[in-house]
Design a protein around this nucleic acid. Structure first.
Lengths: 338, 338
DNA sequence: GCGTTAAATGTTAACGTACACGCATAGAGA
DNA sequence: TCTCTATGCGTGTACGTTAACATTTAACGC
């Protein structure tokens, strides 16, 4: 069904059909109904090609995520996925504009957000990892925004779609895997670099939940606030002193390679199994070298691809996007590295 | 750069530019060179939207795979991925035409292939699981075919792209996982339903390779030709009689659930770890119920998506597609089921 | 009955590409 | 000098949508 075909059937010109479809201009009630009926029974899906060709416009998409180079390059993986998707959809000319902020600095997030709002993009992809601040910023905008979330959800907001992984299940799975790999029942340590991050806390919670099902497993919580990561060696030393028979470590964030290298340098690796998160390059390297035993991944590139495709669906096709995507929990050993 | 822009710069009409770009009609050598030079320095990428709009044609893609309902629905997962991708690219109207054949019947494959050749599709997606026959059929075609392989490669042919998983590594990984899960060192059994399938034999080979690295692991090969799957219970009984302390079973194909249910019904499950292949619904069910401990998957939907996207790249964008895609080996436990 | 006005509807030119058609011009042959 | 043909090139239309612009129609007051 094309506009011309509808026009022919209704006995009017395409101009009138256009007015009905786009609800602009004046059309007599009976003509409107006649056209509406045809559309309702026959169905009309505008030709995305012709529309895009005529509109002749770029779709500028703002991406608000932490610095690409930080967190071992995790955000770069996500960003690459978005770029890749924009190439796949190159015909529709999506232009990706990056707005980085320094985690966990409020002022930085606010500045990047404001800058992004001033950019006049038609839609936004946001990593709402600083929950309160992001919520406040979104609520502060009076205009109706088109935005999506990536990496984490943010309850109480109205995104077009959310693409993320269940962090609790991730931690739970890590518990199971660590138990399998270490062939023991503890003691284990959970290493948490960011204390405020929802995802990371949930992973730790899931990990504990797994071992809560087992009997008498000793778990040690090693927390280091984000500004003082240099204290980590001391904390690990303390942990090792307290539990010389430590059997495993779960690092909830992508910086597992730092811990793994430290453990290896101390000569503790042969007794300690290590499980980390995300296939960032340094983690992959450690996995290859046997310094890390297992990694859990959340398909960051696929997250990026999916979120942009949903925006395409909403903006170009004007279809309702799927409100939520749960990314699978991928398990990687040396043997199944890509 | 548009055709019109090139024309303006060259001081000719778009018709002449068109003749140069498409190498049709007659153009004077110096005019041709003038236009060529502009194209070479400025670069010209035809607008995919306008081209498609003008061409106004469907791209009919023939898909040659085994029956969707057989092999526990594995091929349906692949097919769904292809369909999904064709929806994502709906603007370019790919029409998928399915040609099923009965594995491993030669006559059936030949008939389906011939029928597909007669369909006049512009490109083909082929699962070359019956190697010799598929190769012979492809070589028998005199016309230049545009085809891709999915699920397996086929050496000595010229596909646009091949999307598959390394089956040897899959089996190797299965070995590692079975050892981890069973917390023992055998005896283990490998169950192989199809004796002729390359992928399945490779998986078994990889599995053996893993245990070749360990000491004194007893491996039992349980092979059942495809026409006599009903003999499987007897074979399993024999295996269990020979090795009453059997610790694990690796089923190289998607029918693991059949073995798993049998083992469960015999009351042997508590001593035997089971690892299978592919997230077909019955396997997923068994995994949930604990009748299967672990599944390896090859992202069939993603394979379908990827192969169609490469065809889009080739046919619509006229870019060179990536000749090969290795799908990751995904590991699934009950805890990370989607 | 005629002019005026607003409401209702029609027309047309893009967007960039593809391709059929046809018009100039030059050189050859009568 | 006058056709005739081959060569080189320009023009026009279509694909389906959008949106500005133009035209028709009906209603009303004088």
């Amino acid at each position: 069904m094309t506009v011309a075909e509808i026009a022919k059937r209704a006995g009017v010109s395409i101009g009138t059909v256009d007015r009905v479809l786009h609800n602009r201009g004046r059309v007599s009630p009976k003509t409107r109904k006649r056209i509406q009926d045809i559309v309702n029974t026959e169905g009309y899906h505008p030709n995305a090609l012709a529309r895009q060709l005529k509109r002749n416009r770029d779709y500028r998409i703002g991406v608000l995520i932490p610095e690409l180079k930080k967190e071992s390059g995790y955000w770069e993986l996500i960003y690459n996925g978005i770029l890749r998707a924009s190439e796949e959809l190159s015909a529709f000319s999506f232009k990706i504009e990056l707005f980085e902020f320094i985690r966990p600095e409020r002022a930085s997030l606010t500045a990047a957000f404001k800058k992004m709002m001033g950019s006049g993009c038609c839609a936004y992809i946001i990593a709402p990892i600083m929950e309160e601040e992001t919520r406040a910023l979104l609520e502060g905008e009076k205009s109706q925004l088109t935005y999506t979330f990536i990496d984490s959800p943010l309850p109480g907001t109205r995104p077009i779609t959310t693409v993320a992984q269940d962090p609790f299940r991730g931690g739970y799975l890590a518990g199971k895997m660590l138990e399998l790999i270490s062939r023991s029942n503890g003691p284990y340590a959970v290493v948490r670099p960011y204390t405020e991050a929802f995802n990371l806390n949930e992973r730790a919670r899931g990990f504990n939940a797994w071992f809560a099902l087992q009997k008498d497993v000793v778990l040690l919580d090693v927390v280091c606030p984000e500004r003082h990561l240099n204290e980590m060696p001391a904390l690990l030393h303390a942990a090792h002193q307290k539990y010389p028979d430590l059997k495993g470590i779960f690092i909830v964030a992508s910086m597992g390679h730092q811990i793994a290298n430290f453990i290896y340098e101390q000569g503790w690796k042969k007794d300690i199994s290590i499980i980390g998160y995300d296939l960032v390059t340094e983690n992959v390297q450690c996995l290859k070298e046997g310094k890390i035993d297992c990694l859990i991944s959340q398909r960051p590139e696929e997250q990026g691809r999916q979120v942009l495709y949903q925006l395409y669906k909403k903006i170009v096709l004007e279809e309702e996007p799927n409100p939520q995507f749960n990314m699978p929990l991928d398990i990687f050993f040396k043997e199944n590295l890509i």
